[in-house]
Amino acid sequence: MTDPMVMGSERSEVGLPAAMEILRSGGSALDAVEAALRRCEDNLEDHYVGSGGLPNARGEVELDASLMVGSSRAFGAVGALKGYPNPISVARAVLEKLPQHALLVGEGAALFAEECGFATAELLTEEAKRLWREALAPSSDSVEGENTSSSAGDDAYRVAALDLVRRLSPHDGPWGTINVLALDASGELVVGVSTSGYPYKYPGRVGDSAIAGAGNYCDLRYGGAACTGRGELSMRAIGARAVVERLALGDDPETACAAMLAEAAMLPDDFRAELRTLALTPDGRHGGAAGQAGSVYALMSVTSTEPEFYPRKVV
């Protein structure tokens, strides 16, 4: 039996020690992944996940998250969730308490979270609000009249929002979805994903993080994979599932990740941005790929005192 381990994308190191503490004590991969991602969601310095996430073009924070269990391929997810700071826990509740469904979005996801007793919170922090306003300010088409009640103003806002989706890129520094993949002492493998989505996105946009096979996929026979970055590309390439399919064919994790990115790179996309991916196998092999040099992922084993960083293969 392989020793427990946990790995994650850039910025997951905030949560990996909590996950490893659970795994060392014999806890489940599901508990470990949820604990790690909750730590990341609660990190107010991270503007791409949970509380403090950057808002959509309307100034509202919408969160996506999912969990997939390798042994059963059970999947739970939420998309465009407002007002609840830990979407990964709501996604787990979908998986465990609402097994007839796999994905809830928008008002339905919030209703379910309320029924489950999850606490609400104001997700738009002052820092995220400042970044949003600064991003809007330089444009001659900025949405300064978003609160108007006139139909002409509403139409102008929608046009400006579409323009923002087209032209705005994230601020400098680490950004994107956070992935966490964990293998426990029983041999179970779980993948979790959480994000506030692409900054200044069109309201209601749901990315790959909430879609089984796109941003998240886990099959205990072969391995698990997760994606971060340009979610629309991952959805079109069925990115995470494509990586696991390569693992099933015998590729090592790094090769499988690189092959998926190479395929996704062939898709035409006027809004192309980098896509990254990670993979972990049931026997503890791990790897990742990215489109930029210097990209890394974090990993902890039972002997780790802190997260260790490994380079991703550059495609």
Rank of each mutant, 00 (worst) to 15 (best):
L168V: 13
L168C: 11
S169R: 15
D172V: 02
G173S: 08
P174D: 03
P174H: 07
G176M: 08
G176V: 09
T177R: 01
T177D: 14
T177H: 10
I178N: 07
I178E: 02
I178W: 05
N179Y: 02
L183D: 04
L183I: 05
L183G: 00
L183T: 03
D184H: 01
A185L: 07
S186Y: 01
S186N: 04
S186G: 10
S186K: 03
S186T: 05
G187F: 02
G187W: 00
G187R: 02
L189S: 00
V191R: 04
G192Y: 08
V193M: 02
S194M: 13
S196D: 00
S196N: 06
Y198D: 00
Y198S: 07
Y198W: 12
Y198T: 11
Y198M: 12
P199R: 02
P199Q: 08
K201G: 03
R205K: 15
V206I: 15
V206D: 07
G207H: 06
D208K: 02
D208F: 11
S209Y: 05
A210E: 06
A210K: 03
A210F: 01
A210Q: 05
A210I: 10
A210N: 06
I211A: 04
I211E: 02
A212C: 12
A212D: 00
A212L: 03
G213P: 08
A214S: 14
A214Y: 13
N216D: 09
N216A: 10
Y217R: 07
C218Y: 03
C218P: 03
C218A: 14
C218F: 03
D219W: 06
L220N: 13
L220T: 03
Y222L: 01
G224N: 00
A225K: 10
A225N: 10
A225E: 02
A226I: 00
A226E: 04
C227Q: 12
T228P: 07
T228W: 04
T228S: 15
T228Q: 09
E232K: 08
E232T: 08
E232L: 09
L233I: 12
L233F: 00
S234N: 04
S234E: 01
S234I: 06
M235N: 09
M235K: 11
M235W: 01
R236Q: 13
R236K: 10
I238D: 06
G239E: 03
G239M: 08
G239T: 10
A240W: 05
A240H: 04
A240E: 05
R241C: 14
R241G: 04
R241V: 07
A242G: 09
A242K: 03
A242M: 14
V243H: 02
V243D: 07
E245M: 13
R246A: 14
R246G: 15
L247I: 04
L247Q: 04
A248L: 14
L249I: 08
L249T: 14
G250S: 10
G250W: 09
D251R: 12
D252L: 11
E254A: 15
E254W: 04
T255R: 09
T255E: 13
A256V: 10
A256N: 11
A256R: 05
C257E: 03
C257A: 14
C257D: 11
A258D: 02
A258G: 12
